[in-house]
Design a binder for these strands. Structure first.
Lengths: 339, 339
DNA sequence: TATTTCCAAACAAACGTTTGCGCACATTTT
DNA sequence: AAAATGTGCGCAAACGTTTGTTTGGAAATA
């Protein structure tokens, strides 16, 4: 039968010393003699001793679980981010409790409750598209449990977050197109309410300016990101007095819609640049000629690291204003090697 | 400041009764009077009492964590499966510890170790492509910790598993093509070593037989599933004395490769049927006309349910041979609505 | 009335580990 | 020689909960 795992007690009994001595020996406490330490460690190794995490966590009143709530696991951006989150969590001895909101605000609220019940030590959130109120996160603030937002960040103050800087990537993208000879560059942007839309626009403008070109606001159009919406704005673009020879799209889906539409019109020669969300893009016949990479793995890692730092930070003195982590990960233009 | 969560002790103190009474009252133990129960429950509700899971789990010597090791989170099949696993885990009060092998056997071995250290109560595994030995799972058997395999199942005896029945889905697929008028149906199958390849072949054959058609083995070809491999076998197909008018491919990637290749040859009119792995398929210009759906969500749920059942099964009498769960989830042909 | 049965609640141990405190002994300082 | 300091280790409490055993008293039986 399966012998129960070795405990510190058994080691103590065998060595005829107290449990506390064993505990301290294993933790390299300074008040334990070298010989005793050696003996303890040797026996521990022989017996395959592994500390009972549950006991420790219970004792310390910490769950050593970090909650992660994100919109869709099946979106490659998020599943890649999770990968980074987990690598960090594992290294730092935390367990990840995963949950998906499926972009539903109500479900998100429910999940936040669940996380509280599970007594997570910290929370990592990428908010759902439909979330418009943010009180459900207040509970955590009250309980002094840190929350770090990443990628999809609520428009409120006093929060920790990790997000990508889309401005610089967009700058690079537009710059790349300009260097390639394009002079009329369109942009299919997302809803103007999104921070991400704003950043894209800024990057676009900066690229134009730094190339001493005039910025034509009518070349940037907002889109609801659906297929029909994309076709609609594509029509606007194509009927523009200055028809773009290149278009930057909000994401890969929009790029695919737009490219499919131009092909259906038997239009050729428009260069597309997008933002990397889909790995599958490599399997396709027609792909954007470049992509702005947002490094979801890196972002996930960073966010998890910050969260765990926050969990373990020394007790913040009451009254003292604490600092908020606002980390921005630069994006980067990746030029496709498919010609 | 954040008041610490309410404990059973505090309730006891306030009500001037013992902790054990409170505990039993909350758990509806029979030996507690109705009035006491009411009083306890009322106060518990008022104080927002939530049992400290860590304490319970520690006391019971259970971690209430199930480990999940799978090849790639970013593959939609797996991320969908995870979703099902988590739903079940949550409902049954378990936490999911997630890990990816990235289809690397060594990493998988490492992760199994990690899971052991974390003292998971059970393990859910979809084995990596490169795994060829399976001793690392033996440790769990020895420790009496249940392991359930799903989707990618090792070819060994005496294991629990959940897998999809590809035979029936393939049968439906081929049948569908036959009904559509096709008489020469090719199949790009995977490596013959895979169970999944075998099942596809069987389904194919059964469909032919039940339609009273002769089965031509040369119409089924093995493929390493790479793009070049796909092109190679496509050439074989296209030069076959009986050129197929429809082809069933091992997965969506192979379908995409094959379809791209036929288009590059400016060949038209071959119908493709594939197995649903990629949601993105809907965004593409050319898609298979039908897909065999494997219900990863359902499979994940089922696997998790079985695992947790196994964890909580009454102690198996030593010596008594225990039964192994071998669950097979039927696949189903989904006909694409994109014409 | 004396004894048994039963109900409701209390007591106390247990789970594995960490940690503040204290004790004994040895060494160094006054 | 007495006092202070240091070293190495043990004692016991603590974390929150469950659960086997015990207790007190009331009701039921003899």
């Amino acid at each position: 039968m399966s012998d129960k795992p070795t405990t510190i007690k058994e080691i103590a009994k065998i060595l005829k010393i107290s449990v506390s001595t064993v505990s301290r020996a294993l933790n390299d406490h300074s008040s334990i003699g070298l010989t005793t330490k050696m003996r303890v460690k040797k026996l521990a190794a022989e017996l395959n001793y592994e500390p009972n995490q549950k006991a420790i966590q219970f004792l310390q009143g910490k769950s050593h679980i970090i909650g992660v709530i994100l919109p869709e696991l099946s979106e490659s951006f998020f599943s890649t981010a999770i990968s980074g989150i987990e690598d960090v969590a594992y290294k730092r001895n935390y367990t990840v409790l995963l949950a998906q909101s499926h972009d539903d605000a109500d479900r998100e609220k429910l999940l936040v409750e669940k996380m509280k019940t599970q007594r997570v030590d910290g929370l990592l959130v990428s908010v759902s598209k439909t979330t418009s109120t943010y009180e459900h996160f207040e509970i955590f603030k009250k309980l002094n449990i840190p929350v770090v937002f990443f990628d999809r960040i609520p428009p409120i103050k006093d929060i920790h977050y990790v997000a990508s800087n889309l401005e610089n990537g967009t700058y690079e993208a537009v710059n790349f197109l300009l260097k390639k000879g394009h002079r009329t560059i369109g942009m299919i942007n997302g809803p103007t309410t999104l921070v991400a839309s704003h950043e894209r626009k800024e990057g676009y403008i900066k690229a134009m300016i730094s190339n001493r070109l005039k910025f034509d606001p009518s070349l940037i159009v907002s889109c609801d990101l659906s297929e029909s919406g994309t076709i609609e704005v594509m029509n606007t673009m194509l009927n523009h007095r200055r028809k773009p020879t290149a278009i930057v799209t909000f994401n890969d889906y929009v790029a695919l819609f737009a490219m499919r539409y131009t092909r259906s019109l038997e239009l050729e020669g428009i260069d597309f640049v997008s933002y990397a969300n889909l790995p599958i893009i490599n399997y396709m016949d027609y792909t954007p000629i470049a992509s702005v990479e947002q490094f979801p793995y890196k972002q996930g890692k960073k966010a998890a690291d910050i969260l765990i730092d926050l969990i373990n930070r020394p007790k913040n003195e009451t009254g003292t204003e604490q600092a908020y982590f606002n980390v921005v990960v630069d994006s980067e233009l990746i030029i496709s090697n498919i010609k």
